[in-house]
Design a protein around this nucleic acid. Structure first.
Lengths: 320, 320
DNA sequence: ACGGTCTAGTTATACGTAAAACCTCGTGGG
DNA sequence: CCCACGAGGTTTTACGTATAACTAGACCGT
């Protein structure tokens, strides 16, 4: 029973090379010794690791947790593992560029919101698929996107249809292609209707940040917004608090919308009208695309549709 | 310039073995060729990978995301990477036990809530540290715990001190040492006071689940609870909704408490009185313990303190 | 009977790194 | 003058796996 025979049997490549009797002897011995293959050696030999890196801005968001879950599920189905690289803010400055991602990698799946971290790990020399980033500007890498432009139009049309004309956009202060698209698309849609106003305020992506930003915006002179469009459900929660402090009721006085549809959206009172992003599906698509690239195929094109979930936080504006 | 010299210089072990001039030549060449070491080969040679596995029940909870963040930060500080293994529910049945954790591992940090997954990956033969599990029953592995028993007493004493006598415990239906401790400690504390009642309802850890469970419990005949103790902030959100539907106000009619202090807690109206668990610190402690085990040291003992954050959801019961 | 083919193996090699063991000078002390 | 020694290198080996290349019989048709 040579080492080669063992390798063949355990690698399930023994048909016609090893007799059934010997194969069984090998399996029995492996069982008895509780043998485990040395992954490092296998990786070295094969020159690939079946491990990919997922780069996300921060994990403490339900959204990216969902992206991870979807990506990891697809990866597991194809015998791949997923290593996570949350951006430096969460982890601390990457001291040694190598230390952060100890695992040898086959490819990288990266959110555009963590683009700076990308160059730090030098994922740029590995097969790369970008999540949520400019299809025309991403280093030539394949891109998987949510159809956020369409989603933004759905939000705008919903509110315009209800009769709203004065908008406040509570925007995330993170530089990112996605948020740029949202701002642009919202402005385009709103301004297409005569007599509308659109104000924008930027805030860190926390409830407290949005609370402060919304209060400032509400105190600013000018036409009072009857609809507040938030870049994120969490921001909407902050807006709820700001409105409550001003004695304004949702949706009677002001309508509010979010983006993501995380658990928080239905915890709010009234439940939040929000743009549902299917985070897991996003992660799945991204991983499928990366696996395609790794196999030399070209990944499927096409943005992932998103849709508006209308709940209790939006209604017709008070006739003024 | 031999390969050995290169290895010495790049491994920063060249003092007295290689001249400064040669060292510089090596570094220059490495830079020019954009050399990256092959991690698989290094892992094979050294027999260790500087990679550990974190096993958590699901990532879509802010709490475990925090645990990961803390653990990953400490790991990175020590040149370690962290691979994640969310439990099968999130990922799908682990087909090949090896496939799930492709990376070769040095150790495992595992939440007790995913104990079954542990044997699947056979982390049991690697250095192991358990998070939140019975110190006396965990395979002899080191254990890092939050002082959840003390925390539960803080919650109970707070409510008892306000005058509450009739309690509803909205408990997670996940079998776990932590949740058992909570139930036991709560019951002990409440029953120590004469004239009290304590009812318990179990629910999946979702807002909808808690909503349904709370509604059922509220409709059950018997003394009406004036205080609802939830195993989790998300469950508390469901309880808020149930109370709202019954026309009961928080905290005037019913007080509510949670556990975790995630963002959701301050998004609720009124803000939730909750037991703050410092998830990141928990992850940091766990990783420190695991690193200690890996170095042959014995990890520090002692539970991590938790403390009650009193907000607007608790108050004195209505005099009846 | 003999070359060819098939079966069931074994032997040998490569992957890239770290580090032990070995080599070769030049220098300083006795 | 010779030897020990240290500085500065180089050669060699080992890690565990996958697989290409080789080998030894057994069997088959002509």
């Amino acid at each position: 029973m040579s080492q080669a025979a063992v390798s063949l049997v355990l690698g399930d490549k023994w048909r016609g090379r090893v007799s059934e009797a010997t194969a069984e002897r090998v399996r029995e011995a492996a069982r008895r010794l509780d043998y485990r293959p040395n992954l490092a050696a296998r990786n070295l030999r094969l020159g690939r690791t079946r491990t990919v890196l997922l780069v996300v801005p921060a994990l403490t968001t339900e959204f990216f947790a969902g992206v991870y879950t979807g990506a990891a599920r697809v990866a597991a189905d194809h015998g791949f593992g997923v290593v996570l690289y949350p951006s430096p803010e969460g982890i601390g400055p990457a001291r040694d560029p190598f230390a952060s991602a100890q695992a040898a990698l086959d490819g990288v799946l990266a959110s555009s919101m963590a683009a700076d971290a990308l160059t730090a790990i030098r994922g740029d020399r590995l097969p790369l698929v970008m999540l949520d980033s400019d299809p025309h500007g991403s280093l030539g890498a394949a891109t998987v996107n949510l159809d956020i432009a369409d989603g933004t139009r759905q939000v705008a049309d919903h509110l315009l249809g209800l009769g709203h004309r004065h908008f406040l956009h509570v925007a995330a202060d993170i530089p990112s292609w996605t948020f740029d698209v949202r701002a642009r698309e919202l402005a385009a849609r709103v301004r297409a209707v005569p007599g509308t106003t659109l104000r924008t305020t930027r805030t860190p992506m926390t409830i407290e940040g949005a609370l402060a930003a919304a209060e400032t915006a509400l105190d600013t002179p000018g036409p009072h917004p009857t609809a507040v469009v938030c870049d994120d459900d969490k921001l909407a929660a902050g807006v709820y608090k700001a409105l409550r402090r001003r004695g304004l009721r949702v949706p009677d006085d002001v309508s509010v919308t979010g983006v993501d549809d995380i658990a928080l959206a239905t915890a709010l009172d009234p439940e939040l009208t929000t743009l549902r992003l299917d985070a897991e599906r996003f992660g799945e698509h991204g991983m499928h695309a990366l696996l395609a690239v790794l196999e030399g195929r070209t990944p499927e094109q096409g943005d992932i549709p998103v849709h508006l979930v209308v709940r209790g936080s939006t209604g017709a504006p008070r006739p003024s």
